[in-house]
C-alpha cells in the first residue's frame, strides 16, 4: 500500500506491505523490515531491521506527532488531507485575523469600535502563564467589532477584533 505522507511539512512517500504485525516498508532510498507491538494507546515498540525503537504517538491537529528519542516528527497523510482542505482555508485566514496565539486572558483592549487602525498597531494585550503578548492589526482598516473584554479567557481560534479593510487606493 502506498502512503503519501507529509513529514514536518516535507512530502515523503512510503510503500508498505503489511501482514499482521509485520511491515516491509520502502522509502526513497531504503527498504526496511519491521515488526511492531502496540504497548499502549500512545506507545509502539518497533523492531526495525533487528533494532528496537520506542515510538510515542498522538493525534494532533490533522496529523500525528511521533516522538522518537526526544525528536518529534509531525506526520500527515496527504491523501487524508484533501478532506481537510476547508480547514486549511480556515488556517489561511488565521494570518489575517486577530486571535491569541495561545489560551490566554485578555488584560487590555487598546481600541474601540470605529477606530481607524494602522497595520501593526497594538490592539489587544493578552497574558498567559504570566507572560504578556500584544496582538497587532494585520492590516489597515476600521474596527467594526470587538468580541472580547478585559478579563476574558480566550482560545487561539477566537476572533477577538473585526477590522473592515479599506479600499486600496488606486
Amino acid at each position: 500500500m502506498e502512503y503519501n505522507l507529509i513529514v514536518n511539512q516535507e512530502k515523503k512517500s512510503a510503500d508498505a506491505t503489511i501482514s499482521d504485525h509485520h511491515l516491509k516498508v520502502k522509502t526513497g532510498d531504503n527498504i526496511y523490515d519491521a515488526s511492531f507491538v502496540i504497548i499502549s494507546e500512545h506507545h509502539i515498540l518497533l523492531n526495525v531491521d533487528g533494532r528496537n525503537v520506542n515510538a510515542f504517538i498522538f493525534s494532533d491537529q490533522g496529523g500525528k506527532t511521533v516522538i522518537i528519542k526526544g525528536r518529534s516528527y509531525f506526520i500527515q497523510d496527504s491523501d487524508l488531507l484533501e478532506q481537510n482542505l476547508s480547514e486549511k482555508k480556515g488556517f489561511m485566514k488565521q494570518s489575517i485575523i486577530v486571535s491569541s496565539p495561545m489560551p490566554a486572558v485578555v488584560i487590555s483592549v487598546l481600541i474601540k469600535i470605529g477606530d481607524r487602525v494602522e497595520k501593526g498597531q497594538p490592539l489587544i494585550i493578552v497574558s498567559a502563564m504570566k507572560m504578556e503578548t500584544t496582538l497587532f492589526a494585520p492590516f489597515e482598516g476600521i474596527v467594526s467589532g470587538i468580541n472580547t473584554k478585559e478579563g476574558d479567557k480566550v482560545m487561539p481560534a477566537d476572533i477577538l477584533v473585526d477590522i473592515e479593510k479599506e479600499e486600496e487606493p488606486q
Binding site: 512510503a14 503489511i18 511492531f36 518497533l46 515510538a55 504517538i57 500525528k64 511521533v66 522518537i68 506526520i75
Partner: peptide, 14 residues
C-alpha cells in the same frame, strides 16, 4: 525520518 514514518504506518495499521 523513515523510522518515524514506519511508526506512523504501524500506528495506523495497529
Amino acid at each position: 525520518i523513515d523510522v518515524a514514518m514506519i511508526a506512523f504506518i504501524a500506528d495506523a495499521v495497529g
